[in-house]
Each structure stands twice: as C-alpha cells, then as structure tokens.
Design a protein around this nucleic acid. Sequence first.
DNA 1: GATGCAGTTGAGATTCATTCTCAATAAACT
DNA 2: AGTTTATTGAGAATGAATCTCAACTGCATC
Lengths: 141, 141
Amino acid sequence: MKKEKELYRDFLRSKNLKLTKPRLVIMEAVFENHEHFNVDDLYEQIKKKHKNVSRATIYRTVPLLVESGLIKQSLRCESKDIYEHTYGHENHLHFICENCGKIIESGFSDVANLIDQLAKDEKFKISEYNLGARGKCKDCQ
Amino acid sequence: MKKEKELYRDFLRSKNLKLTKPRLVIMEAVFENHEHFNVDDLYEQIKKKHKNVSRATIYRTVPLLVESGLIKQSLRCESKDIYEHTYGHENHLHFICENCGKIIESGFSDVANLIDQLAKDEKFKISEYNLGARGKCKDCQ
DNA sequence: GATGCAGTTGAGATTCATTCTCAATAAACT
DNA sequence: AGTTTATTGAGAATGAATCTCAACTGCATC
Ligand SMILES: [Mn+2]
Ligand SMILES: [Mn+2]
Ligand SMILES: [Zn+2]
Ligand SMILES: [Zn+2]
C-alpha cells in the first residue's frame, strides 16, 4: 500500500474515523497532481473521473488531510483557501502573482533557519510556517 | 499637519480622489491604536466616538490605505482579513499562537533580505511580504 | 460664496466561499 | 447478518466582502 494511504488510514483510525470511499477518492485526487488546489479544483478533478463526491464532503475532508500532515494550507488566492500536498516534498515558500494568479515556489531552508532562531528567542514553538510574498511575476510587470 | 495625514492627502490627490470626512475619520481611527484590526473592529471603534461611517465606506477605504502604504494586510484571523498600520513602524513578522490567539511580533529585515534575493532570482517584484508562523506561545506549551 | 462636475457616501441587495442540517447510507465490529 | 455509530449528499444558511444607485459633498472655477 502506498505510504500516504497507510498514513491516512492510521490517522483516521487513531481518531475513530472511518476510511470511506469518498475519503479515499479525495485523498487519491490530492496526490494525483502536483498543483496547488482549492476545493473547487478538487471537486472538478474528481468529477472528471466520474468518481463524484459532494462539495460538502470535500470541505469536510480537507481539514482532515491537513491534520494528518498529508497536505498543507497555503496562501489564499482569489478569496479562496488553497492547499497543496506536502507529504514527501521539501518545504518551500510561495510567491503569488496578484495579476495572473501564478504561484512560484522557491527555496526555504535558509529562511526557515532564520525564523527558527527568532522563534527560539521568543520561546515560541512553530507548528506551521507561513512564508511567502505577493507581487507581480516577471510576465506581469 | 501629521506626517501620515499629509502622505494620505497627497496619495489621494495623486489619484484624483477626494479627502472626505469619512476617509479622514477612518485614517485617524487606524492610527489611534496600535493593535491589529479587522473592518468590524474599525467600525466599532469609530462608532464609539460617534463619528459614524458605514461599513461599505470602510471596506472601500481600507484598500486605499494599503495602497498608500500607511497600513498593511496581515495574516487573516478567524476568517477575516486583518490589518495593522505600518507607517512609521519597523517591518516585522508575526508568530500567531494557535491556542490563545496572541500575536507576537519579531524581527524582519534579515528574513526580508533573504526573500528579496530569492524573489530577484525569479524576477518577481514583491509588493507585500507574508511572513510568519503558527504555533504555541511560551505560555501555552 | 454661488455654480457645476466628478467623485463619494450610506443602505440595502448581492455574491460566493464555507459551514451547517438532517434524513438516508455505509463502515466496522461481533 | 445485525447493531452501532460515523458519514454522506443536497440544499439551506451564514457571513465577509462587494456592488448598486440615488442623494450628497469636495473642490476647482468664476
Ligand atoms: Mn507549493
Ligand atoms: Mn504586527
Ligand atoms: Zn503574473
Ligand atoms: Zn498562547
């Protein structure tokens, strides 16, 4: 079984939640592509494969995927919360173009090291970084 | 005249916008306290001083304040956009406690320098940094 | 300090992402 | 298979943010 499915199943079990068909379909869709996505993107992607799941269920499942550590919420874009699967991927930061909506990924570890130091100074325990910037991509300036 | 009012007036003039009473009331309210705020906070604050301004006008004015450089949008909190006046203040990043909601401010420039370099590599023009982390403050661990 | 014009306001309607409700259904365990 | 308990889908509800438009106001000009 794929590592992420195992992790998901164990996570659900640990919370007395059931590994249902919709929950599996959603999780698989999330790992099917490597783009950042919002709930509606996911809904359409799943619909295209004729494995329909309601929006309500996607809205309910995404927070579970976040809690399980498989995906992370990213900077919001066009008034919608966006996510990306992060399990098995390097941390990185996001540059979001305010004009065309494009998301550019960039390095992370140097920035994270610096912030870790600042957090340490404040005795703050980081659980999730929120790092990026808005602006104009090179095509939109 | 206060420096920020001057800057505001010049900004408005440069865009052929009028310095109206509501716009002035809102700007003054923003500089009256040093907390992070959302539109509703501002609305209530202004109402308390009996200088009522409609929510619609606040929603219309806040983006102008952002564009003028007097305030910045910060990390959103409880599904609402939050802001802080930044004119005359050092840039800083935010550590948000997931438990008690406290916002801790910390240094910035080293982190910004690093990110500036990464953005330069991508030919990305930053208009707004979005830097911080969620986690637990020292009192909540 | 009256006039004209373009930008502005407030109130309420509207949009739209997200959350909620609840009756019907499915997973998990014995 | 039967029992229990969580889950689902459809649509209603919520609420932050935006839009509409008739009445109003800042401001430049005379
Ligand atoms: Mn990413
Ligand atoms: Mn701050
Ligand atoms: Zn762009
Ligand atoms: Zn705390």
